[in-house]
Design a protein around this nucleic acid. Structure first.
Lengths: 107, 107
DNA sequence: CAGATGTACTACGACAGACGTAGTACGACA
DNA sequence: TGTCGTACTACGTCTGTCGTAGTACATCTG
């Protein structure tokens, strides 16, 4: 289990990755993060939903409602062009971080 | 320049690395971080000194005074056995993070 | 048919860590 | 004498995460 303190900087990137090709919604995204990390990282619900509103405010994602026939209505999120751009920058930053942190690992 | 949000989780590790073999002090450590990262990451003074007091409270480092003949007296920090242990755990966690984040990078 | 479980959120307040700003204090150098 | 470099300390703000709690509906289970 990875501590949230170290994942803090990547939460936005993880979410943007999962909506990059097709819109998605909270519960689905949280399940995918858990699955993709093989249970090593689980994003808390409150963290996820507050990330959504932050990303929406930054115009990196847009909310819309799905037309579920039954069940509680879902809020879907779709990535914007700025969001894609931001995601790509984060990927580049990730490479830099790897380079830097690696220097502080004792061999 | 790397954003501090993503480095937040590694600041403690960086400091512990730099006092692992021999004690050091604030200004020296901040210079080394800048040099080792080739200027990509610069830890702010306030961030560094607040990390010191946190690490000291956790018993991962111990403070002592150097016997400088002139100039302002320095506070040196020496790593403890718990500090070394914590550092090693952080290195293992770093590997896990790499594995996880890598899955969220579009190829 | 009632209650547990899963889905899909929202609200609120607490807390930790990073940061901006400012100030202190001393030495060296021009 | 004044600026730059060294070596901190204090204080208040902000952002992001988290704990707790509550709402609401559907489906599954005994």
């Amino acid at each position: 289990m990875i501590s949230s303190d170290v994942m803090r900087g990547y939460n936005d990137m993880l979410i943007l990755y999962l909506v990059y090709d097709a819109p998605s919604y909270g519960y689905e995204i949280s399940k995918q993060i858990k699955e993709m990390s093989e249970g090593v990282y689980v994003m808390k619900e409150t963290t996820l939903y507050s990330a959504f509103s932050r990303l929406e405010k930054m115009k990196y994602i847009e909310a819309f409602f799905g037309d579920e026939s039954g069940g509680k209505r879902r809020t879907y999120y779709r990535i914007t062009e700025e969001g894609r751009q931001y995601y790509r920058e984060k990927c580049i930053e990730w490479r830099e971080i790897q380079q830097v942190v690696e220097k502080f690992i004792r061999k």
